[in-house]
C-alpha cells in the first residue's frame, strides 16, 4: 500500500484514496473533437513517472495531482487542484 501526502490532511493510507485518471486525459470543456477523442481514449501510459488525478474520497474529499513512478510507486509530488489551490 502507498502513503499519499494529501496537501490538506498530510500523509494518509492509500485505502482512503481513489484513482480517477491521468492528467493527460482530462478533457477541457472547449476541446475540439479530435483533442477530446485523443484525451478520452488514449494514454501516455509511461513505464516511469506520470501525473495522476486522485481523490481523497474517505478523507477531505478533495481532488489532487499525484506525481508517481509506475514501477517503484515512489510519489515525488502531490499538489492540490480546484478553488482551494488558488492564491
Amino acid at each position: 500500500m502507498m502513503r499519499i501526502p494529501c496537501p490538506h490532511c498530510g500523509p494518509r493510507a492509500q485505502s482512503e484514496f481513489i484513482y480517477e485518471r491521468t492528467v493527460d486525459s482530462v478533457v477541457p470543456l472547449n476541446a475540439p473533437p479530435e483533442e477530446a477523442m485523443t484525451k478520452l481514449f488514449t494514454r501516455n501510459n509511461p513505464r516511469g513517472v506520470d501525473d495522476e488525478v486522485w481523490r481523497h474520497t474517505y478523507g477531505c474529499r478533495a481532488w489532487m495531482i499525484v506525481t508517481r513512478h509506475r514501477v517503484t510507486n515512489e510519489i515525488s509530488g502531490c499538489r492540490a487542484i480546484g478553488p482551494e489551490a488558488l492564491p
Binding site: 500500500m1 502507498m2 484513482y19 494514454r43 501510459n45 506520470d50 495522476e52 509506475r70 514501477v71 517503484t72
Partner: peptide, 11 residues
C-alpha cells in the same frame, strides 16, 4: 490504478 510493477497491493 496504473502500474508497471509486477507486484500487487495487499488491500
Amino acid at each position: 490504478w496504473p502500474s508497471y510493477a509486477q507486484r500487487g497491493h495487499p488491500m
